[in-house]
Design a protein around this nucleic acid. Sequence first.
DNA 1: CGTGGCGTTGAGGTCTTTCAACGAGAGTGG
DNA 2: CCACTCTCGTTGAAAGACCTCAACGCCACG
Lengths: 257, 257
Amino acid sequence: MAVVAMAEAAPAVARCGGRPGCETCEVRILAACRAVGAENLARLAAAATCRRAEAGRALFEEGEPAEAVYTLTEGMLKLYKLLSDGRRQVVGFLLPGDFLGLAFGRGYAYTAEAVTPVVACRFARTRFMGLLEEFPALEKEVLTRTSTDLAAAQDQMLLLGRKTARERLASFLLRLAARERRAAAAAGCGAAAAGAGVADVVGLPMGRADIADHLGLTIETVSRTLTSLRKEGLIELPAVHEVVVRNPAGLARAAGR
Amino acid sequence: MAVVAMAEAAPAVARCGGRPGCETCEVRILAACRAVGAENLARLAAAATCRRAEAGRALFEEGEPAEAVYTLTEGMLKLYKLLSDGRRQVVGFLLPGDFLGLAFGRGYAYTAEAVTPVVACRFARTRFMGLLEEFPALEKEVLTRTSTDLAAAQDQMLLLGRKTARERLASFLLRLAARERRAAAAAGCGAAAAGAGVADVVGLPMGRADIADHLGLTIETVSRTLTSLRKEGLIELPAVHEVVVRNPAGLARAAGR
DNA sequence: CGTGGCGTTGAGGTCTTTCAACGAGAGTGG
DNA sequence: CCACTCTCGTTGAAAGACCTCAACGCCACG
């Protein structure tokens, strides 16, 4: 198949398969599929393979035969579609715990590319389908997630079709902040859990071009709009890849609706 | 499922519930859920209720508690989301056979409003969930459909984020034509099947405002762009609510990609 | 035959894009 | 350690695609 690439080089944990060596995968699969129950976790893990990819590498590409599904365990992925002349639409950014690759069409509907170095659990498509049969709870979970993704996509349609640049950026930042908060809460049990005061610092690992292609804007407009939000005191930009939400209420107002 | 149709003076059938009186629902549910198998059709039909709505009426509204799911059996629905100031995004148009209302959030994610007079099968949410348990094949079907909807939503994101007005209209018309063709083929078995030469006449039951709100444009731009496509000989506009695709290849080229 | 809704067409305005220049930071090599 | 270069982000000025405002025509309806 394909699964392109992966430069690899990765240290430790190159593959798993239920072996205790791959704690990351075990934990993440648990988080993603806890519906299955801990007692069946081993079966799930046994069906998976760890894949690593450095930033900029594609896990798979649009149009390629969809021979596997993935659960992202570490890092951030961007999913995008291309027009023949190079125009691009980033349909989503994925964080650990997210599923991807479920395609019922002829091939993958989008390219999945690493924004940061990533680790993902790979399930051969046919095998995954078998797991769905075996664990109805897993199928339910997948349906729930797909449904949630659909709702998010519809929100994005509203953003792309009807919001101004300012509203788009504000919405985007708020959504990102919310996801990060949720992720932090979810990780709180097992991970570092740096304490309460994580504040409202939002990481922006993706570049301006990715943001622009996600929001249907140009990089210049993204840059200008961020600057404008900063000058109004709604946000701070301590670093290029970091945003602090200084005035959540104001930002929410700027996001429209 | 299909048949696009619309105008259609519907005969009888105000309610069903598995009773032989409601052929429409039986046929439609069959079409929608044929995975379940004919022998279980009665159980499915028994769980459903026929709902009718005239053009302009809402089946349910955004934010309302999601207490039911539906299968559209006749007519066309539009699904839309609103911003507080009235800006609107039509996230989709539904044809007979389509599902709607599956929401895992707190309430419906969008308003469902009849474009033409519609008939829909209503399933109480809890009962539908029970059916999903009972018929794994139905659950699989729902997952497939949701996944397909998600892919369509991502296509729409590409359209809204990166395509020009001209490309948006061309894409929209081609998509509509394709759906109509598929629907006609599917209906061929049971319905009128007006013969082979249905040609490439596409019905546009929705108003210009609906099209505009679906494509992220204004009604003026929609009107102007349609006129422009007509003057170039790519389409004909025999009536306000009808389009003939005269040059499919050219239109595909105009659609980008 | 007046009225209102809807679609079309025109003219001017604006938000975002395009084109262009500049600056900061990372990696490389002398 | 310091030029050099390349990428990426920011900022400015001009251009353009689409929007807004407005008028008009058509048709259904009472």
